[in-house]
Design a protein around this nucleic acid. Structure first.
Lengths: 140, 140
DNA sequence: CTGACTGCAAACGTTTTGCACGGTA
DNA sequence: TACCGTGCAAAACGTTTGCAGTCAG
């Protein structure tokens, strides 16, 4: 995928910082602002946190990024081109992508509510297999 | 539903502030902290914002409340006894409850990932009928 | 009576803003 | 060259914390 093209399409200038941010998000999937910042800082020591924030806002408004809000976790971001839903482990905080079709439910909701729905933020919360095997639940 | 009972079950003391918070959330459904605070302040001018925060945290940890995180909106809370998913209007920020069955997808995700899933945070994003009729969309 | 809860104020971390400089188109 | 984007520092914001006093059990 070509970031430069999508930036230009939205009349956003192509700067090394933006490319770095997008590449970071592309590689890590759902990632928080501070992680983006500290990861990029390795290659780009001069980048400022304010720039990361400003760009994330800009990219979000340009619909290049989307927010991922999981309960009990701070905000993360992912490429909006990458459609999927999530499962979150409540124990370890891990977040995983799953590609399942939610259009049937989406259509049902649209029918019920009259809304025009074009996006989905779905997160299933539970315990991942690793945490489940570690936690030997004795209580009923 | 009796709030006192559920509080006592979790070894939380029954205080007028907690009852007020719970009643507020019960009435308004998904509501943000400041709205809870300012609404309660009408009847309880002495309540402090810190108390609201502390109680929301306590109630959340006691599983009496759940978080609702919609993209581009601040955190809200609702009673966790009240299971449903949401549709959000991106134009006016309205959030509505819908009661549809997501267990098929949940089960599918559980099968794929191996997770034990016990909760769902699903929000469909779109445009509500009112905003749609205001915005005369010419584009297909 | 005792520990839990409240309210206040101060502290904290995160996000936003203003401004001068620098880089893209 | 014109303007958008960057980086810095300060400000704003939401949330958390410490503490002394109060109240529920």
């Amino acid at each position: 995928m070509n970031f430069e093209t999508s930036l230009k399409e939205k009349n956003l200038k192509v700067t090394p910082q933006r490319i770095a941010i997008l590449r970071e998000i592309e590689q890590n999937g759902h990632i928080g602002v501070d992680d983006i910042y500290s990861n990029i800082k390795k290659d780009y020591p001069s980048i400022s946190l304010a720039t990361v924030y400003k760009n994330i806002t800009a990219l979000y408004e340009a619909n290049i990024l989307r927010e991922v809000k999981a309960p009990a976790q701070k905000q993360r971001y992912e490429l909006s081109s990458d459609h999927h839903i999530h499962v979150a482990c409540e124990k370890c905080g891990k977040l995983e992508d799953i590609r399942v079709d939610v259009s049937s439910i989406s259509n049902e909701c649209a029918k019920i509510t009259g809304y025009t729905l074009y996006d989905t933020s779905a997160i299933f919360i539970g315990i991942c297999p690793e945490c489940a095997s570690k936690t030997h639940k004795n209580k009923k």
